[in-house]
Design a protein around this nucleic acid. Structure first.
Lengths: 183, 183
DNA sequence: TATTGTTATACTCTATAACTATA
DNA sequence: TATAGTTATAGAGTATAACAATA
């Protein structure tokens, strides 16, 4: 049985939440996800800027401090960006002397990434601030709720990993003027 | 009393979660938020692309179907982008005939935004698919957990609204060559 | 003077395509 | 042939700055 017009309208307007500032936002996964990411990235930016890093450079630094001697593809997977982008990110951090690429003896195509002493030191210097910021973001929640939020996010991400490909939300580029099978 | 080295290392490695695919990801708000948003936006992109819209254009369409006759600044606040960007978004949707700007009689600086009949029709055509996609994203959770996730996100966003300014996560532009008080 | 929207422009981030070298 | 990384390039998305009209 179809819902009445009134019922539909009520359902729809219930979706709209008004924040304290009056800002209207939809109580739906995608808009909330966008905001949440925007907030988190802005928060990280404040501390990474102290070290003249952008948030993604900081993310790479942090990732490598947890998982060292991984190759670029693995870092790309960990950061959720593609390998070209990681290459660029790595170039920047290498220029700053924060990490080094070394050829993997077992597979000489691959390069293993490792923080330099300087990179490690910077990471350790930023770590307390970073932890503080992450904690402050979730401060409005109880400790149990914080755990719940992280757990639910992990499960949703895990179940939808196919969507987490770099470039998946991007529009198709204009078709090349000479496709492989054209004259 | 300071934690032991071993304890610190254990704490750190506990942060790293391995998804089923083997992808390593930090069990920390920011990386999870980034992934979650990436996934949601990619999911929305699949349906908005059918209507030749990008995810943000779709978001504007959806927002205006919930809240009509708002001005551009309010839409900007709702979407979490700045007023110039909204202006551009609106230009695109207006060109497609999906919405119209009309001068606000009460304040002739402002323009009120409203979907055209065509815009409304498109929105209604996409709505079922959009709802389906949002539901699928959260499908791995129980209904109660879905509510919890949305609620927790709203609370975190509400408490950190100050960070949700457009451009907050961006690096400072290079200083202008002629600051206001230079010769 | 402050605010809405516009115009003109800039820039960050991240991608695709083609290439090199190894496997 | 397939994969890791690199080079060269492109483009989406979104911002800042300066301005006009209105308040």
């Amino acid at each position: 049985m179809a819902k009445s017009r009134e019922k539909l309208d009520r359902d729809r307007s219930r979706d709209l939440v008004f924040l304290k500032s009056g800002t209207p936002i939809k109580r739906v996964a995608t808009p909330l996800a966008r905001r949440f990411a925007q907030i988190c990235i802005a928060a990280v930016a404040e501390i990474s800027a102290d070290a003249d890093l952008n948030p993604m450079q900081y993310a790479a630094l942090a990732h490598l401090s947890d998982e060292s001697d991984i190759d670029q593809n693995r870092l790309a997977a960990g950061l959720g960006i593609d390998r070209t982008s990681v290459g660029q990110l790595i170039d920047q951090l290498e220029t700053k002397g924060l990490l080094e690429r070394r050829v993997n003896g077992a597979d000489r195509r691959a390069k293993l990434l490792r923080l330099t002493a300087r990179g490690t030191k910077l990471r350790e210097r930023l770590r307390p601030k970073a932890h503080l910021v992450q904690a402050q973001l979730l401060a409005p929640l109880t400790p149990a709720e914080r755990e719940t939020l992280l757990e639910l996010l992990v499960r949703v991400i895990e179940a939808n990993e196919d969507y987490a490909r770099p470039g998946a939300g991007r529009r198709k580029p204009k078709p090349s003027k000479s496709p492989p099978n054209s004259p």
